[in-house]
Simulated assay, not measured.
Amino acid sequence: MHYGAKSQIFDNARKLRENMTEPEKVVWELLRKRPLGLKFRRQHPVHIYILDFYCHEKRLSIEVDGGYHIDNEQVAKDLERTSFINQIGIKEIRFSNDQVLNHFEKVELEIKKILQ
């Protein structure tokens, strides 16, 4: 389930759980209620990566991206990460902070649609 994640990745994940961004808190409020009866984990370690939210039953990662994700270097890193995640059978969907904070109804509908 963790694909060889090292202890440092688990430590980093714990720190991220303790310091969630406002958009992550908004998404977590939806996911912690177990939509459609599905359990999600916050800041879940997988290999060298930390997934914002992960549902093992659906093999789904939900990412909430801050503004730095538009930087060309970060875009390349995100593509590499998504490629790895997909190769191990995990589907990844991404939402921007703006989408979460300003259009949450659409984000919620899309998440529920994918989970069905």
Rank of each mutant, 00 (worst) to 15 (best):
C55T: 03
N12E: 09
R41E: 12
K39R: 10
P45M: 06
L30S: 03
N102D: 12
V46L: 15
C55A: 10
S7M: 10
D98N: 14
P45L: 11
E22M: 15
E24I: 00
A5C: 07
V46I: 12
E24T: 02
E63Q: 07
N19G: 05
E108G: 04
R14M: 13
F84M: 08
T82R: 04
V26R: 06
T21S: 13
D52V: 02
V26G: 08
T82V: 10
I111M: 04
Y49S: 04
L51N: 00
V27L: 15
L109I: 15
E22D: 11
P23C: 01
S96V: 02
G37V: 00
R34Y: 06
F40Q: 01
L101P: 02
K15R: 13
R41H: 09
P23N: 01
E63F: 04
A13M: 03
N102L: 08
L30W: 00
L16D: 05
N19S: 06
R32N: 10
I93W: 03
T82H: 06
H103L: 07
R94S: 03
E29F: 04
C55G: 14
V100T: 03
E57V: 13
K58F: 04
L31Q: 01
D65Q: 04
I111S: 00
R32V: 07
Q43S: 05
N97G: 14
R14A: 06
F53V: 03
H44N: 11
K77L: 09
H2V: 05
D98H: 14
I62M: 12
E18K: 11
I111W: 01
F10L: 15
L51A: 03
H69S: 03
I114Q: 08
V27P: 01
F84Y: 11
Q116C: 11
V26S: 09
S61P: 07
K77T: 05
G37E: 02
H103E: 10
Q87F: 15
R32T: 08
V107W: 00
V100G: 00
K39E: 09
H2G: 10
A5G: 04
L109P: 13
E18S: 14
E110F: 12
L38H: 11
L115E: 00
E57Q: 15
K113L: 12
S83V: 12
P23T: 02
S96Q: 11
I70D: 15
S61C: 10
Y68I: 12
